[in-house]
Amino acid sequence: MKPFSNKALLFAALGLAVLYVVITVLHKTEVLNDYIMRIIILMMINAILAVSLNLINGFTGLFSVGHAGFMITGGYVAGFITTLVFKITSETPYAAALPMFILAILAAGAVSGLVGFLIGLPVLRLSDDYLAIVTIGFGEIIRVIFNFISFKVDRGGWVQDVGGPRGLSGIPLLSSFTVVFVVFLLSILIIRNFIYSRHGRACIAIRENEVAAHLMGINITKYKVMAFVIGSTFAGIAGALLAHIIQMLHPTMGGFMKSVEYLIMVYLGGMGSISGSIIAAFGLTAVSEFLRPIGELRMVLYGVLLVILMLKMPAGIMGRKEFPFLVPLKERQKHVKN
């Protein structure tokens, strides 16, 4: 790796480090209270979801409307591991719980990725419209499955029914700002590295002209599945983080409605833009907190937003542009020349 040949990246890295320190300090001194920290964490989680969905929909040109299903699969897996397997409670010291949490996150990603693979393989040959329906259906199936799975847990003295229609509750609060920040940065970095490589180029080629890509020697099914699996893996990771900040999960959270919210973030931000997804995710999360008082009306506005977006600004906010520090040095130099 040549980390220091890229000045902009260096500045960005420094900037992020500074940001991290500032936020942590502000939090410790109570300037930023817990409520705001929670929103910041949610923003980052949603950004991971938006960027991973963008990889599937925006860069590879597929049309998955079931991202929330992967998210919630990851969430449940992680939740089950921390509550049932490791039996972490609010009493457990954070230092001891952290490695188990990381394990849970990795497991969540792995399972979601596996599910993505199993679904993707047969289904990704289908055209847009069918894929949309199948992915919506997937979300519903997940909801049904998680509605169905329930365990009886021995809580020392009494037996509790966990899972099923009641959802999963009592998940320990393990998603700290640090953990989420690090996972967020890693996720963005990995996805960005994927995009700016021959694999990413193959995916974009598939989006642009699938037939031509196929005839230029690219195994299109392999790459569609690859993008889908990577996207679903990160959705699962985000789900694990989400479960451990809102501390509960319910099967309905993996449904169509939630998937559409992520879809909005992707299309609002711009279909081929990582930066756009991040901005849109941050923005939408913040806005929906603001709009919380008006409750359901918020969802109505989302619907209108989607329609108007498609009619007036289909390229989204950023279109295909990126923040400079995300684009590799060589690429950026090239664009500057022209």
């Binding site: 847009d128 109505v300 989302y302 619907g303 329609v307």
Partner: peptide, 27 residues
Amino acid sequence: PLRSKPRLAALITAIGVSFFLSNLVSY
């Protein structure tokens, strides 16, 4: 208005309309 544009745009709009109507009635 979207008939000349790629199908994806119309699909997304359809989702938006669906979202709008169901949430409106709910609200």
